[in-house]
Amino acid sequence: MNEVNADTCHNLSYFKDLMKEYRKIDDNIMLKLNTTDTHSKEACANFFVELADAYQKREYAIDKCLKILDAELEKKHKALEDDPFDKDLKNQMFVDESKRRMINNEFTVEDIVRERSLTVFKNKCRIFHISKEFEEFINKRR
Rank of each mutant, 00 (worst) to 15 (best):
D96E: 04
S117A: 08
K90S: 05
R141E: 15
H129S: 12
E50K: 03
S131P: 01
F47L: 00
R126T: 13
I25P: 00
I68L: 15
I112W: 01
N28A: 06
E3D: 15
F85N: 08
N104W: 03
I29R: 03
C9T: 03
P84C: 02
F94Y: 09
D83N: 12
K64V: 05
E135I: 15
E74M: 10
F107N: 05
R126E: 12
V113G: 09
D70F: 00
M93T: 10
T8G: 04
E133P: 07
N2K: 10
R141Y: 08
H129V: 14
L89K: 01
N2S: 10
R101I: 03
V95M: 05
L118H: 07
K75V: 05
N46L: 04
I29M: 11
K124N: 14
A54V: 01
K87T: 15
K124M: 11
N34R: 02
H39R: 15
E136G: 01
A43R: 14
E81I: 11
A6D: 13
E135W: 05
T35Y: 12
F15K: 11
D26T: 08
I29K: 05
D88K: 13
N105I: 04
L80D: 01
A45S: 15
R23G: 04
R142Q: 12
N5Y: 01
D53E: 04
E136C: 01
D37V: 03
E133K: 04
D96Y: 11
L73W: 04
D27V: 00
E50T: 10
E97M: 08
H129W: 02
K20L: 11
L89G: 00
A54P: 07
K41I: 10
L18K: 01
N2H: 14
M30H: 11
N2Q: 12
Q56N: 11
C9M: 02
V95D: 00
Q92D: 14
M93P: 11
Q56F: 01
D27A: 03
I138P: 12
T108F: 01
K140W: 03
C9E: 06
K16I: 12
K24I: 08
K124V: 10
K140M: 00
L69Y: 14
R58E: 04
I29A: 06
K99C: 07
L66P: 09
N11Y: 09
K57W: 02
H77Y: 13
N34K: 02
F134D: 09
K64Q: 12
F128P: 10
H10I: 09
K78E: 13
K122M: 14
L51I: 09
N2G: 06
F107Q: 01
E133S: 12
E42N: 14
L80S: 07
R116C: 01
N105C: 06
E97Q: 09
N123E: 15
D37M: 05
P84D: 14
K122R: 08
V95R: 15
K99Y: 11
E74W: 09
